[in-house]
Design a protein around this nucleic acid. Structure first.
Lengths: 175, 175
DNA sequence: TCCTATAGTTGGCACTGACAACAATGCAGG
DNA sequence: CCTGCATTGTTGTCAGTGCCAACTATAGGA
C-alpha cells in the first residue's frame, strides 16, 4: 500500500507520484479556498452584529434544534469553555436563550430566539445570494457537481481528522 | 433577475429556481468544508509551535519571497496592524527576519529564515500527506478535477468579495 | 519649505481558543 | 444514607486575532 518509492520505474507515470502530485494540488487549492472564504465570512458576517464564530454557533443551533452546551461545542469543534462564552455573548445580544434542563439540573438547554432566527435567516440569505451570483458564471453540470464534491471532501477530512482518527497531533516531530 | 417566485410555473424546472437550489447546496457544502478545515488546521498546525494565522503568514512569505508588511497584509486580507503583530511573533520565534529597506527607510523587508523555511516545509509535508491519505479513496478523475474546481471557486469568490467588488458590507440591512 | 501621502508601530477594545480549576449535580456501590 | 466518581457548565488566566484610530518617520511633490 505504501512502499515502493526510492528508485522508481520512471518510464510510465507511477500511481504513487501521481497521487502525490494530486495531493499537492489539492492542498494548494484548499488552502486558497479556505483562506478566501474565511476572509469573506469575516467581512460579510461581521456587519450583522455577530462574529463569524457566533454565526457558526447560531447556525449550528438552528440546524440542531435545542441542544446542550457540550453538544454544541462538539459540533463546532470547540472547547466547552469557548462555547460557553460564545453562547454568553449570543445570549447578551438576545439571539439565544439558556434555560435550565427540566430533568438534569446541571444541564442547560440552548435555544434560538425569534430574533436569532431572523438574524440567521438574513445572514443565510445574504451568503446564499453571494453564491448564487458566483455560480451564474458556471456551467450547469459544474454547478451541480460542486456541492457534492465539497461535501465529500469535508466528510473525508472529518472522518480522518475529526472524531474518527482521534489521535490528532504531531505526525512529524516538532522542531 | 430576482423576481418570479411565488406562483411559479411549476411544470418545467425554471432555471432561476435551479440556480437558487444550486446556490443553497453550494452554500451548505462550503460552510461545512470551511468549518472542518478550519478545525483541522487549528489542530494540525498548532502543535508545530505556530498558530494558524502565523502559518498562513509564513506560507505567504515563502510563496511571495521578500515582501513589505503592507503587501503581506493585503495577501492575507488582514489589517496592517494585525500583520505587524503576527510578524512580530514570528520574528520572536525566529522564523522571520525584519530588515530595513535599503532605499525607502520607512519600509521593512520581511524574509523567511532558514528555521522558518524548515518549519514551513514540515507543516506543508504534513498537510499534504493528510490530503494524500484522503485522496486515496477517490477516483482518479475526481482527484484531478477537485483542485481545479476549488481554485475556480476561490478565484470567483475573491474577485467578487475581495479586491474586485470593493464595496463590502451589508447588502441586507442590519436589524 | 511645506503639505500630503505612505510604511509601519502602538494603544485600545472585543472576541477566540485552550487549559485548568471549580461548583453543582447525577449516579452508583457499599 | 453516604461516599466517591463522573458529568455539566462556568470562571480565571493567558496568548493570540483582528479592527480602528492615533502616531512616528520618511518620501515626494508643489
Amino acid at each position: 500500500m505504501q512502499g515502493a518509492r526510492a528508485k522508481s520505474v520512471t518510464a510510465r507515470k507511477e500511481p504513487e507520484a501521481e497521487l502525490q502530485a494530486d495531493a499537492e494540488n489539492l492542498y494548494a487549492a484548499l488552502s486558497e479556498l479556505v483562506r478566501v472564504y474565511q476572509f469573506r465570512d469575516r467581512d460579510r458576517i461581521c456587519c450583522h452584529d455577530v462574529s463569524v464564530t457566533q454565526c457558526y454557533a447560531l447556525e449550528a443551533l438552528v440546524r440542531r434544534g435545542p441542544s446542550g452546551l457540550n453538544e454544541l461545542a462538539a459540533d463546532l469543534f470547540l472547547d466547552k469553555s469557548t462555547a460557553s462564552r460564545v453562547v454568553a455573548t449570543l445570549e447578551r445580544k438576545g439571539y439565544v436563550a439558556r434555560v435550565a434542563h427540566s430533568e438534569d439540573r446541571r444541564a442547560v438547554v440552548l435555544t434560538v430566539t425569534a430574533a436569532g432566527k431572523r438574524l440567521h435567516d438574513r445572514i443565510r440569505k445574504d451568503l446564499v445570494s453571494e453564491e448564487r451570483a458566483l455560480l451564474a458564471d458556471f456551467e450547469p453540470e459544474v454547478r451541480k457537481a460542486a456541492p457534492k464534491l465539497l461535501l465529500r471532501l469535508a466528510r473525508a477530512a472529518m472522518s480522518r481528522t475529526g472524531r474518527g482518527g482521534a489521535a490528532v497531533c504531531c505526525p512529524t516531530k516538532p522542531e
